[in-house]
């Protein structure tokens, strides 16, 4: 079953077509990679999927529902969330609160409940707190639950972004270069954790990475983007041996 179905979306910024008639789909439970050199349009694709940009043309279907042009928070509530390439944590509040904010959409109590500390409120808050601490423990961050998010070292900030996204209880999680700035070993263990999370939470994952070697190990299928255009799609072995991909990455001049 197609969880996400992207039908020839285009994003035009003035004279620049950042993404040009891109189509692909993700099946439920899949771990798919979206790769391409810097500036290929990967982040722009995420921004369209999650509602930050409205595609100039084309349709995006999530769970059989057209979502292009919806507000980001609506799309998040439908079950698609993301992390950001340039870390966007809620820096000046605690690590725990960062995760709890992800669950805001699932909280049913009213403002009055909170003001009167009703049973509904107390139970919901307690459950949320426990669940958020549990999520933090995936990356061993529970001991830093009460630290300011902005005070975490860089790598942990990236991990916290993933935990925060998990807090929304997504079906599809879009990770935008989660390993950026990490060393080889950190990257390796991050990729393992992503694979594990996906299994434990029954997730579908769309992973952006510009370094193609990193995703070969864990992705089942890969879409390669260059200058906004899909140049290849297939299993890691297909991608590795594709002349078009090699060309795009090596920057070989086109021969006329």
């Amino acid at each position: 079953m197609k969880l996400l179905d992207v039908r020839s979306i285009t994003m035009q910024f003035g004279g620049l077509k950042a993404v040009d008639s891109l189509s692909f789909h993700i099946k439920k439970g899949e771990l798919m990679g979206l790769i391409g050199p810097n500036g290929a349009g990967k982040t722009t694709v995420f921004n369209m999927l999650t509602g930050v940009y409205k595609p100039t043309l084309g349709e995006i279907h999530f769970n059989g529902q057209a979502i292009q042009g919806r507000k980001p928070f609506e799309i998040s509530r439908l079950g698609m969330t993301r992390t950001f390439q340039n870390i966007r944590l809620f820096k000046e509040i605690s690590v725990l609160e960062n995760v709890m904010i992800g669950a805001t959409q699932h909280q049913k109590y009213s403002m009055l409940d909170a003001a009167l500390i009703t049973a509904d409120y107390s139970q919901a808050e307690k459950a949320l707190r426990e669940k958020s601490l549990e999520l933090l423990s995936i990356f061993g961050l529970e001991s830093k639950a009460y630290d300011e998010a902005g005070s975490l070292p860089y790598g942990e900030q990236r991990e916290l972004e993933i935990v925060r996204a998990l807090g929304t209880q997504p079906q599809l999680i879009c990770l935008d270069e989660p390993a950026a700035g990490m060393n080889h070993q950190e990257t390796h263990s991050l990729m393992e954790t992503i694979a594990k999370i996906r299994k434990d939470f029954n997730l579908t994952v769309l992973l952006i990475e510009h370094d193609m070697k990193l995703v070969m190990g864990i992705c089942e299928r890969i879409v390669v983007l260059d200058h906004g255009v899909k140049i290849e799609e297939g299993t890691p072995s297909v991608i590795q041996n594709s002349p078009k991909v090699i060309e795009a990455y090596l920057g070989v001049e086109e021969v006329h």
């Binding site: 507000k71 980001p72 998040s76 969330t81 809620f90």
Partner: peptide, 14 residues
Amino acid sequence: LSVREDEIAAEAMG
């Protein structure tokens, strides 16, 4: 608080 900290991230969190 999430609005104060980062609106785009807040929206992405629903």
